[in-house]
Structures are given as C-alpha cells and as structure tokens.
C-alpha cells in the first residue's frame, strides 16, 4: 500500500530538506497568506453586493412589476416565475431521484449491470455543462414536446440537471444507515417496501436534506439552462405554459442588455442570495421535522 502511493525515495528527500527553518516559516506565511486572500475575495464579493444592493431592496421592490425594462420598479414576476420553475423542478426530480437512490442503494445487488449503467450515466450527467442542458431542453421540451418557451419546459430542464446531485446524496444517506436497522426491520416482518418508507428514508434524512438543499441551490442559481427554455418575458406568469423570467436571468439581462440597470441588478442579486440562504434553512428545518417525526412514530 505504502509503496504504491509514495514515490520511491520520498523519505530521503524529506530528510535532506529538514534543516532550513526559514523555509518552514515561508511556507507557513504563504499558507496563511493564501487563506487571507481567499477570505478577502469572498468579503469583497459579498460586501460589494450588500453595500450596493441593500439601498434598493424594499417591500415594494420585491412585489412590484418591473418598469422601463427593469431599470425601475420591482421584481415581483421574477420571484413568482422562479418559485414556479423550482416547484416544477422539485415535483419531478424528487420522486424520480428518491426512487433511483433507493434502487441503487438497496436493490442494486439484484440488478448489478443495470445499477452500474445507471450510475455511470448519472456520473456523466453531473458533469454536463448547463448550457448543454439548455440546448437539450430547447430541442426536447420546447420544440419536440411543443411546450414552447415556458416555465414547464424550464422546470423540467432543471429537473434533469439536479437529478444526479439529489440521487448521489440520498444514496450516500441510505448507505450510511446501519445494517442493524435492516436486520431489525426484517426480524419484525416488515416488507422491504415498508422498511424503506418507514425506516430507511427517515433514518437517511440527513442525506435527503443535503440533496434537497444542494439541488435547490443549483436550480435557483441556474441561468444558462433557462435562457432558451423558460424565456425572457417579464410579465407575471399566468400558467405553467407561460414564459417566465427567473431572478438569475433578470440579473444577466439587466447587467448585459440594459444600460443603467446595474442598481436593480445589484438588488436582484442580493435578493437571490438571500433566497438561497433562506430556502436552504427552511428546507433543512422542514425535512428534519417531518422525517424525524415519522421515524419516532414507527
């Protein structure tokens, strides 16, 4: 094991360089310097957003319709569209993702080849660039399934995108459930289906929560996959077949295509970041609460 990982002669090299104390000091300094620089960049980005954005954000900004191509007015329709896109995305990806994760974690020994194939294709899916999802979504959902530029098409495209994230963390969660739980369920005469539903999923709730949070984060942050699927329209969406502009596309459009839109872009970016934080928090609280309660009832 050691020979396989460490190059031959590593020991001698290290010994030879034991002496210079100043080199150690330099390395220490350099490590702390890099950490400080990364922190500074983070503070710079977040500070800049908060500093320029906080002045514009108010209740009326959040609920109003945009005016003058977004330079004035609010972001009400974008928030509604983003919420609808996210709902569609989760409504499709959560059931499919949970099912797949359960199959891969609990039943894959029965279907070895199938499991390997599914896992391999999910690995690739996780790496597919978002713009390629956009191309696929516009060709498949918008044109082939005739949904046009719509919230439905955008949500479905995002569902494809968050599937691998969701599946990976739920699967890891289920695998980390101790073997005794399964044995105990079998001893009690629970069928495998009931064992999964009442025992394994609740016990795997940390994994489920992490998956949800990561998936929601990815979906809300997404821009490139939505431009050609859910569209640009700033109207308040009336149905899932309407086109709707998400918050992220609004930021892009304001900063690139609308001169003088920077102030509102800052405010929208701030709202988007706060949304991300809040949704993460709510998702974890809710999922935690209901899954734990089910576990106790059993």
């Amino acid at each position: 094991m050691v020979e396989a990982v460490l190059p031959a002669g590593w020991l001698d090299n290290s010994y030879r360089s034991v002496c210079p104390v100043w080199l150690d000091r330099c390395v220490t300094l350099c490590v702390w310097g890099v950490a400080a620089a990364v922190t500074a960049v983070f503070v710079c980005i977040v500070g800049d957003l908060v500093w320029h954005g906080i002045g514009q954000v108010s209740w009326s900004f959040i609920v109003d319709l945009p005016r003058d191509a977004g330079r004035a007015g609010g972001i009400g329709p974008m928030i509604v569209s983003t919420g609808l896109i996210l709902t569609v995305c989760l409504a499709v990806s959560v059931p499919v993702g949970l099912g797949t994760a359960v199959l891969l974690a609990e039943f894959s020994s029965d279907h070895r080849l199938f499991g390997v194939l599914v896992r391999r294709s999910l690995d690739v899916l996780a790496g597919v660039p978002s713009i390629v999802f956009g191309l696929f979504g516009s060709a498949f959902f918008c044109v082939y399934l005739r949904m046009g530029y719509s919230i439905l098409a955008g949500g479905l495209t995002l569902a494809c995108m968050v599937l691998p994230i969701l599946i990976r963390s739920v699967e890891a969660g289920i695998r980390s459930v101790p073997e005794e739980y399964r044995l105990g369920a079998a001893a009690l005469g629970l069928t495998r289906g009931r064992a999964v539903w009442h025992l394994l999923l609740p016990a795997a709730s940390p994994g489920v929560i992490v998956g949800l949070v990561l998936g929601i984060g990815r979906a809300i942050a997404e821009t490139a996959a939505l431009i050609f699927t859910s569209g640009y329209v700033t109207r308040m969406p009336e149905s899932l077949l309407d086109s709707g502009r998400s918050l992220s596309i609004h930021i892009y459009d304001l900063s690139m295509n609308v001169a003088g839109g920077d102030a509102n872009a800052y405010a929208t970016a701030l709202v988007l970041m706060v949304c991300l934080l809040v949704i993460n928090w709510v998702a974890s609280v809710v999922a935690d609460g209901c899954l734990c309660r089910r576990l106790i009832r059993v």
Binding site: P95, V96, G97, L98, G99, T100, V102, L103, L104, F107, D110, H111, F114, G115, L117, V118, S121, L122, V124, L125, V128, V132, F133, L135, F136, A139, F140, Y144, C160, L163, I167, R192, G193, V196
Partner: peptide
C-alpha cells in the same frame, strides 16, 4: 410492484444522458 416502480425511476434517471446525446446528435 415496488421494485418495478423503482426500476422505472432509475430508468428515467439513467436515460436522461442518452436523450441528451440523442438530441444533440440529431440536431
């Protein structure tokens, strides 16, 4: 019954990549 449902889910999840490649190629 359960296993078929799960298998269907996994089949959907696994076929997304194939669909993507298929549509990229046909287009």
């Amino acid at each position: 019954m359960l296993i078929w449902g799960l298998r269907a889910c996994a089949a959907v999840a696994g076929s997304v990549v194939l669909l993507i490649v298929l549509f990229l190629v046909t287009e």
